[in-house]
Every structure is written in C-alpha cells, then in structure tokens.
Computed example of a mutant assay.
Amino acid sequence: MAYNQYGGGGYNPGGYQQQNNYGGYQPPPTPQQQQQQAYGAYGGRPQHQGYPPTQNYGRPPPPVGPPPGADPQLWSWFTAVDTDHSGQLSVDELQRALVNGDWSPFNIETVRTMVNMFDKNNSGTIDFNEFAGLWKYIEDWKRCFQAFDTDNSGNIDHVEMGNALKTFGYNLSEPFIRLLVQKFDKYGKGNITFDNFVQACVTIKTLTDSFRQFDTDNDGWIQINYEQFLELVIRQRS
C-alpha cells in the first residue's frame, strides 16, 4: 500500500506561522447565547484560581506593558492567564484559559502538545510571542473544526472525522476511524470535542511522520526490530 493511498501531509493550520490577525476571542456567552450556540469560545476565558504570585528567581522581570506592535486585547488575555506574573505561561495556566464549546477544560495532553509546538527555547513554558502564534493556531483549528462539524452539534462523530481525515489526505478504514473516535471520546457519546479533535489529528500526523522515517521505499510497509519500535513510540511522545 503506497503512502498516497493512506498517508497525506495532514492538516497543518496556519503552518505554525505567527500572524498579526489573532482574532477569534469570544467572551463567555450569556445563558441565552449558550442556548443558541452549539459551541462557543475555544479559549480566551481566563479563570483566576487565586494562586499568589511567585518569586521570579533568576528571571528578568516581566514586561509591564505589551511589546511594540502587540495586539492589546491578546496581551490582556495573556496577562490575565499568567497568574504567577512570571511573563511565561505554564501548561497548567494555559489549560485554565482554554475551554470547549461545552465549557469543559481542554485536555491537558492537547495543551501540552501545543505548548511543545510553540516553545522555541524548550523552557516548558511560552512567552507572549509564542502565545500569539499558538493563539492563531487554535483559531485556525477552530475554523477547521467548524467546517467538518456539518450538523453544528459542537462535536465530531466518526463520519465527520472520516471526512476530515480524507480531506487531510489519509485513506483510513471505517473501523480504524471508529477506534480513533472511541479513543478520544471523553464522554462515551460516540463523538469528540474540539480539543480532542485537535489532539487526534495531530497524533495521526505525528505517527505518520514517524512511520515514514522507517518506510524508506515509500511502499506503506516497514520491518523494524523491537528497539526501533520503541524509538518510534518515544519520538511520538516527545
């Protein structure tokens, strides 16, 4: 089986490129708006947890205002989420700021994956500029999610997931797609929320990229030993 039969390039919203038009922030809706919306804001709902500021041992003090040319609204969200006033967002801080359309918090693994993508200096946190790029990435995924959520339910079922993966260039069987949805279905309802849709798509792309490193003749088949298998899995989890 050849790659062009099952392993496309995958969806890479925004190409991880930072743009000036961040957009997409939606404040928490009123009860009336919640009834009208199948899903609402995918992020941008800072939830202050009351943690006291911590000391910035060995770190430069965070900037007192937005960097030159920064979006003031995006800066205000960043500072609201930065509960320890470190000038950096941890995975936990970012998770508290991101919600699905049903107001459930983002999967911590999805947040960790996105932080790893944009953490250019491997600090385990993201600064404002990295946050700006991540925010654009989330907004691009939001538009993608809305495009494939054809029934406007706020969730993706196995049919919609299959259409999405086919559009991304993957030719995967229906049993596998059902298994994928089951794996990322946190409520057991046969569908997946926005955060897990992102995680599922990124997982498929990452695994395919890892597989391709061993499939040197691009025929869709590989033969690997035990340690190579472990290497493939470890790379995917890094």
Results as ranks from 00 to 15, higher is better:
29 P>Q: 04
91 V>S: 08
148 F>D: 00
162 G>A: 13
19 Q>M: 01
225 N>T: 07
67 P>H: 06
236 Q>H: 10
209 D>E: 14
143 R>H: 13
95 Q>S: 12
215 D>C: 09
48 H>A: 07
41 A>C: 04
40 G>N: 14
200 A>Y: 07
3 Y>P: 05
107 N>H: 09
194 F>M: 14
15 G>V: 04
134 L>P: 13
148 F>I: 03
200 A>D: 05
167 T>L: 03
112 R>K: 11
16 Y>A: 04
139 E>R: 11
169 G>V: 10
40 G>Q: 07
211 F>I: 02
116 N>W: 01
12 N>F: 03
79 T>A: 02
218 N>W: 02
214 F>V: 04
83 T>K: 03
43 G>D: 11
227 E>K: 10
107 N>Y: 00
37 Q>N: 07
65 G>I: 00
41 A>W: 03
92 D>K: 11
206 T>Q: 15
88 Q>H: 07
222 I>R: 08
44 G>R: 09
202 V>Q: 14
155 N>A: 05
199 Q>R: 15
134 L>N: 02
36 Q>N: 07
120 K>M: 04
11 Y>M: 08
225 N>C: 09
22 Y>N: 10
232 L>S: 09
38 A>C: 10
55 Q>G: 02
170 Y>S: 14
206 T>F: 00
92 D>V: 04
118 F>A: 03
113 T>N: 10
113 T>Q: 11
110 T>P: 08
60 P>Y: 01
122 N>Y: 02
56 N>H: 05
24 G>E: 01
168 F>M: 14
195 D>Y: 06
207 L>K: 15
192 I>G: 09
13 P>D: 09
151 D>Y: 03
71 D>R: 10
150 T>K: 11
146 Q>R: 12
114 M>C: 05
24 G>A: 09
22 Y>W: 10
164 A>R: 01
153 S>Y: 01
84 D>P: 04
157 D>P: 01
7 G>P: 01
117 M>V: 00
13 P>F: 04
134 L>W: 07
25 Y>G: 06
137 Y>R: 12
64 V>H: 13
76 S>R: 14
9 G>Y: 10
115 V>T: 01
88 Q>D: 08
154 G>K: 05
161 M>F: 14
49 Q>V: 02
